[in-house]
C-alpha cells in the first residue's frame, strides 16, 4: 500500500471581481493521505503547488471537493480585495506560485514510490509527474465560446 498518492490537478475557474471578470487556470500538484481520526479514517488532500490549502473528509470524493473549494475560496478572497484585474493578477501570484521545499520533497518521494511499486489506482487516471506546474490569470471580459475548456480533475502523478 502506498501511504501517500502524488496527484496532479487541472482547475479552471471564472472569478468575478470589482469591475473585472477573470479566468484562472492552474495545473498543480497535491498529495492524498489517509489519516486516522479518533478511530476512523479520513482522506486528506494537501496542496503542494500551490501550498496553503487542504481538504478532507470521509472519502476521496469529499476530500477532492473540499480541496477544490479551498483553492476557489482563496481566489474569491483575493478577488474581493482587488480593485482591478491587474491587481487581482498581482495578488494571485504569491498564492498560485507558492511552494515549499519540505512538501515538494514529500511529493517527489511519493512519485518515486509509485514508480517503484508500479502502483495503479483503478479510480484515477495516471499522468506524467514531470509535467510543469503552471497557472495563468486571463481577462474574460471579451472572450467567446472558443475559450471554453474542460478540466481534467485529479490524476495520479506517475
Amino acid at each position: 500500500m502506498v501511504p501517500r498518492l502524488p496527484l496532479l490537478f487541472s482547475f479552471h475557474q471564472v472569478v468575478v471581481g470589482n469591475g473585472f471578470v477573470a479566468g484562472v487556470r492552474m495545473r498543480g500538484r497535491a498529495l492524498l493521505e489517509v489519516e486516522r481520526i479518533d478511530g476512523h479514517e479520513e482522506q486528506w488532500i494537501t496542496g503542494i503547488a500551490p501550498v496553503g490549502i487542504a481538504g478532507g473528509g470521509s472519502d476521496r470524493s469529499v476530500a477532492c471537493t473540499e480541496f477544490r473549494r479551498a483553492w476557489l475560496e482563496v481566489l474569491f478572497d483575493l478577488a474581493a480585495t482587488a480593485g482591478s484585474l491587474d491587481e487581482f493578477r498581482e495578488l494571485c501570484g504569491p498564492f498560485l506560485s507558492s511552494q515549499q521545499a519540505s512538501l515538494t520533497t514529500l511529493w517527489d518521494e511519493a512519485v518515486a514510490s509509485i514508480r517503484r511499486e508500479h502502483y495503479v489506482d483503478p479510480s484515477l487516471q495516471s499522468a506524467d509527474a514531470d509535467v510543469e506546474v503552471a497557472y495563468e490569470v486571463v481577462d474574460l471580459s471579451h472572450l467567446d465560446a472558443d475559450a471554453n475548456e474542460v478540466e481534467t480533475g485529479l490524476q495520479i502523478a506517475a
Partner: peptide, 8 residues
C-alpha cells in the same frame, strides 16, 4: 515571509 496557510 513564507507562504501563507488558508484556514476555513
Amino acid at each position: 515571509g513564507g507562504a501563507a496557510f488558508y484556514l476555513p
